[in-house]
């Protein structure tokens, strides 16, 4: 007897594979990106099926949304000159097929050895959760049990943004307002959407302590709001003073550094949160992370939409 759930799972899985295939092998680059975005949306469904709503939120915002926007934007610039068609080379293709097939077979063999029933660390988290400042398992892992990962993750985001901004500085580029700003419809829409985005990301941030949601998802949403504003010609991030921008971009790492420095001086572990006041600390950290994530998101998208100044004349 095949249950409805199994049918649903298998359809999502098949859809994922089909969309991935389309996205990877469609000749036209733009179509390929469109399939990739659809793939991201179905990934969000898969996360829901796996009872991972935090991931579904993040995937919809990042996998489908942000990565899609960044890809489309880059394709628009690059494909205009280079063309959009792919040119497969048969020898390379064959080798890559063989390697990937070998890896796939090895992984399936490994998968058969994975125990079908296991708790992982679920019990350990459940037992320790009352000792932490939050009630949501995922948030407790991210900001308490394995806060060091998150500390490093904020540093990785900062690294990406530094690389993007260094390139921007190099190419004598200046930010040009996107041409959509003339549209009254868009401005009106943004006027309506901006407060909603702000409220909802605030909700996600607050919810993270006891329900799915959290700093990262809230930050991406806030960033999306920022991008909308830039689109509508309301320049928030692109007109920030340079120093303020740097502060806000590094707020997440700075928050972690401040916290862990204080803890170290107090003779505690690098990220050994104190019993009292831990909730305040976690919420403050989440706000800092969300702000820096939002600024990072806007900088990544807006920062790459720059036009080259005409090259300087040689003397």
């Amino acid at each position: 007897m095949i249950g409805l759930e199994v049918v649903f799972d298998v359809s999502v899985a098949v859809l994922l594979v089909v969309l991935a295939l389309e996205s990877l092998y469609t000749p036209n680059l733009f179509t390929s990106i469109a399939f990739f975005i659809a793939f991201g949306l179905v990934m969000a469904l898969a996360w829901v099926r796996l009872q991972a709503p935090d991931l579904a939120l993040a995937e919809a915002a990042v996998g489908a949304g942000l990565t899609g926007v960044l890809l489309l934007d880059a394709a628009r610039e690059i494909a205009a000159v280079r063309g959009v068609e792919r040119t497969p080379r048969s020898m390379v293709r064959l080798t890559s097929l063989l390697v990937a097939a070998g890896v796939g077979v090895a992984l399936v063999a490994a998968l058969l050895e994975v125990p079908p029933r296991a708790a992982g660390l679920a019990e350990a988290v459940r037992e320790a959760l009352p000792l932490t400042a939050v009630e949501h398992g995922v948030t407790s892992v991210l900001l308490d049990f394995r806060a060091l990962d998150t500390f490093f993750e904020t540093a990785v985001l900062l690294l990406a943004v530094i690389t993007v901004l260094v390139l921007q500085a190099h190419q004598h580029v200046r930010i040009i307002p996107w041409e959509l700003s003339a549209s009254p419809v868009l401005s009106g829409l943004v006027g309506l959407l901006a407060p909603v985005v702000l409220v909802f990301s605030g909700y996600l941030l607050w919810a993270g302590t006891h329900a799915p949601g959290g700093a990262f998802q809230a930050g991406v949403l806030l960033g999306a709001g920022g991008i909308l504003l830039e689109l509508a010609g309301v320049h928030t991030v692109s007109r920030l003073p340079r120093r303020a921008l740097r502060w806000l971009l590094s707020l997440g790492v700075a928050g972690f550094a401040l916290l862990s420095g204080t803890l170290l001086l107090a003779g505690r572990g690098l990220l050994e949160l104190p019993g009292a006041g831990a909730r305040t600390i976690v919420i403050a950290l989440e706000i800092a992370i969300a702000v820096s994530v939002a600024l990072t998101v806007v900088s990544l998208v807006v920062g790459s939409n720059l036009r080259l100044e005409p090259p300087e004349q040689e003397p």
């Binding site: 350990a124 308490d144 990220l271």
Partner: peptide, 11 residues
């Protein structure tokens, strides 16, 4: 050195 929680929960 314990960063916070002992392994396997912590790092």
């Amino acid at each position: 050195y314990l960063v916070g929680w002992p392994a396997p929960l912590g790092i």
